[in-house]
């Protein structure tokens, strides 16, 4: 018996209003005819058209997509390996340090990560640019992938791996033919998570990027500092739309995976 009373309904309505009203208003005013962001002047898509003319934003968006794509792909590979190491390699030397390096970036203030990564690049005389932003993004994204893969592996039946080995499959082929396909949904959602993390990051990119590698969040930030404009609302709306689409897809994949697990457990 579940008790679902007035309090619960009230807190859900208030909670979700709080979470969503700001975003909805933001989206709404991106279609505002008026330049005044707080006065409704009729429906218009002119800010989107204007956006398309803004070379600075387009360049930044292109940089961001490149960085996000490369960093999320690399982070997925490294993070998947790290997740397997955390769950299936037992107690190796330096395990505590390893898991510390996986969990710490998830809570570590971004200013610290950004500053320290930058100082190392400077000390090693590595030129700042797209490359350095990508390296920094891979590093913190892979930790998220590792945690996602790790939690999937905790419900993975080891005897599947053993069965494949027992049937004459080599260890590497076993990973490719059995383990990877089974944990694939987790790996895919890890990739999507890395992609959006990279897409969203302002602080670390500000530290590690150089001339010519301004990312979209950096561009938006510099625009925001000058004031609220419908153009920012428009670019934000596009970003929110892209991410929403990605998350909905990922959660549908995740749900299917969950149902599959449930089904196998029931039979």
């Amino acid at each position: 018996m579940k008790r679902f009373g007035t309090f619960n309904i009230f807190s859900l309505i208030v909670g979700f209003s709080f979470l969503y009203i700001p975003i909805i208003l933001l989206i709404l005013f991106s279609f505002n005819e008026s330049r005044l962001v707080t006065v409704w002047g009729g429906f218009s898509t002119k800010w989107y058209a204007e956006l398309m003319q803004n070379q600075g934003i387009k360049d930044a968006a292109w940089v961001t997509i490149k960085v996000a794509f490369v960093s999320s792909t690399m982070a997925t590979i490294l993070g998947t390996i790290a997740g397997l190491v955390m769950t299936r390699f037992g107690n190796f030397k330096g395990r505590t340090l390893f898991s510390g390096m996986i969990y710490a970036p998830m809570v570590m203030p971004e200013v610290i990560i950004g500053l320290s990564t930058l100082l190392m690049f400077v000390a090693l005389a590595i030129d700042r640019g797209i490359f350095t932003v990508t390296l920094a993004h891979i590093t913190f994204s892979m930790c998220y992938v590792a945690v996602v893969v790790q939690s999937r592996m905790s419900s993975y039946d080891d005897s599947l791996t053993e069965a494949a080995l027992d049937l004459g499959c080599t260890p590497f082929r076993t990973f490719m033919l059995i383990t990877l396909p089974i944990i694939l949904p987790a790996v895919v959602s890890g990739w999507l998570l890395s992609f959006t993390l990279s897409l969203d990051d302002l602080v670390i990119a500000s530290f590690t990027s150089g001339p010519g590698s301004t990312t979209l969040p950096m561009k938006i930030y510099s625009m925001v500092r000058l004031g609220v404009t419908p153009e920012i609302n428009a670019v934000s709306t596009i970003l929110v739309g892209v991410v929403t689409l990605g998350v909905v897809t990922a959660s549908l994949i995740g749900r299917r995976q969950k149902q599959q697990i449930l089904k196998t457990q029931h039979t």
Partner: peptide, 12 residues
């Protein structure tokens, strides 16, 4: 060869 207690059938 071995037959596993959980059967370990490859779900995919």
């Amino acid at each position: 060869n071995m037959m596993f207690q959980s059967y370990a059938l490859f779900p995919h």
